[in-house]
Write a protein that binds this DNA or RNA. Sequence first.
DNA 1: CCACGAACCTGTATC
DNA 2: CGATACAGGTTCGTG
Lengths: 196, 196
Amino acid sequence: MALTAALGRRGAEQDQEGGGGGNGGNGNGGGEGRMIMREHMFDKVVTPSDVGKLNRLVVPKHFAERHLLPRVPGGAAGAACPGAVLRFEDGRGGGKAWAFRFSYWSSSQSYVITKGWSAFVRDRRLAAGDTVSFCRAGARLFIDCRRRGAGVVSAPTTCLLVPVALPQQATLDQDRAPRGRRLRLFGVDLELAGAE
Amino acid sequence: MALTAALGRRGAEQDQEGGGGGNGGNGNGGGEGRMIMREHMFDKVVTPSDVGKLNRLVVPKHFAERHLLPRVPGGAAGAACPGAVLRFEDGRGGGKAWAFRFSYWSSSQSYVITKGWSAFVRDRRLAAGDTVSFCRAGARLFIDCRRRGAGVVSAPTTCLLVPVALPQQATLDQDRAPRGRRLRLFGVDLELAGAE
DNA sequence: CCACGAACCTGTATC
DNA sequence: CGATACAGGTTCGTG
């Protein structure tokens, strides 16, 4: 994985959209913040259907198989794994999270995100042409989006560094992901998850 | 419960729709007929979806919980009770009966009758705006329907008196329903089921 | 391979 | 006005 994180972007991203607001959960308390490296998984420029009444996001097959399928509880084997629920934290922080049902539709031979997707579209005002971005930090998944035509501020927005308040010290150890390497950089704990 | 049965309506209801025909079962033999009071449970004016391709009848929650849930074999406790099969006798007599799967769909928070329902819709030519009526006599369930706009013939059609040929003398005693009061009226055995 | 049916999901009306 | 009920969809297994 690339470690091209831009430390300076941290503040910029947080200020990106002040609205919305957290709805409780493990909030992003200011106190003893740690940092976890977010590995970019993939982006998709959403189609009109992705944000329309179909209530589903088609996930390109190679993205789905490379990045999402290995994250479903029992489905790395490539089995059909019907309707796994994946939890994505709001990439902007704030503690909000989204539960998405990740399925394979044999009729169309495609991977889709169904249940929960329309709520995200509404909340983030996602429109055709916008880009959804999926990231990961260890076993934790993140989703974010940017407006169409919104040029990336500095370099490709592939890896971001976000502050995360760990609910408990043990959180990282509870991850079901294979242990990634750790390193401490500039006084910050980083986790290099899932080296490929 | 109301005891407003109209003895005189007996013949009228039986002549209501000569077609159809019995398909065996415990037929309504003429001989030693008894009478059991049918307690009206609830009606529903069916929607286009109820008689369309969805193959299901949505049962209004308060009706389902008050009248159907207590009738499922092990589910009076209010548990989810997935997919109980309830047997409804044809309200017109003739010995025909319908087996319906009665389920709770947690996704829509609603009770539905699924398997077996479409057969009833077809057989009775049920159309949107018609009314399905559910009655009960002890533990025995009955289903009937009337055409849209077909005003009730005499008084609200809430309690009807129907002839029932008991397969065996013991039938009434096998009822799992709480024992209702009995009375003999005009030489007829009546059972007042489920006094409220 | 198609038709049917059972399960599931969601927007909207309603209280 | 938030929660809920339900009417109307879609998907998918099965025969």
